[in-house]
């Protein structure tokens, strides 16, 4: 299980990891090896989206991702999302629209929306963006303010 070191670029910095068991999830690597706890642990079964991160720019559920699978990849978490201009507008839109309460789902939403906007660009129809967030659960806001923030972030990136 210790056959090789893994090298990931996490939030722009190289992270060289030894002794990563084959079954270790990216979520645990980020949170417990690298101390990046902004990425939240919810269901661990792919059902809530709280653990969403970007892997090479694409939004991924870190609870279902094996760390070995992303060897050599660039991982972006909520902690660095605002260093990307799209991520920054998403974050600002969430703040402005009051799109969070307890905040536990928030990193997942912000990262997932950033991924969608980067992938589909300014021309993405609003419906498509909202659809792309169907896997992210929020129990507090009733999604009303979140939908508002999606609209605002889309306009800001357009």
């Amino acid at each position: 299980m210790t056959e090789r070191r893994l090298v990931l670029t996490v939030n722009g910095l190289a992270a060289s990891l030894a002794d990563v068991p084959a079954g270790e999830r990216l979520l645990d690597t980020l949170r417990w090896r690298l101390g990046l706890k902004g990425t939240k642990e919810g269901c661990r079964t792919g059902g809530c989206g709280a653990c969403t991160v970007l892997v090479d720019g694409e939004s991924s559920l870190s609870c279902l991702t094996l760390t070995h699978e992303v060897d050599g990849c660039a991982v972006t978490t909520i902690e660095a999302i605002a260093s990307d201009p799209v991520g920054r507008s998403v974050r600002d839109a969430f703040e402005r629209e009051g799109a969070l309460q307890c905040g536990y789902c928030t990193p997942g939403f912000v990262v997932a929306l950033t991924g969608l906007l980067k992938e589909r660009g300014r021309s993405a129809p609003l419906e498509e963006l909202l659809d792309g967030l169907q896997g992210n659960l929020c129990r507090c806001t009733g999604y009303v303010a979140i939908a508002r923030a999606v609209r605002a972030a889309r306009e800001a990136t357009a």
């Binding site: 949170r31 706890k37 902004g38 642990e41 909520i78 902690e79 402005r96 009051g98 969070l100």
Partner: peptide, 25 residues
């Protein structure tokens, strides 16, 4: 819309809020 900015928005949006699940010693 008169939604006042929440005082906890910034720390939560930066991923800096420590929840029960984040506890460690």
């Amino acid at each position: 819309m008169s939604a006042a900015k929440r005082p906890d928005a910034a720390v939560k949006l930066a991923g800096g809020a420590v929840y029960g699940t984040d506890l460690e010693a």
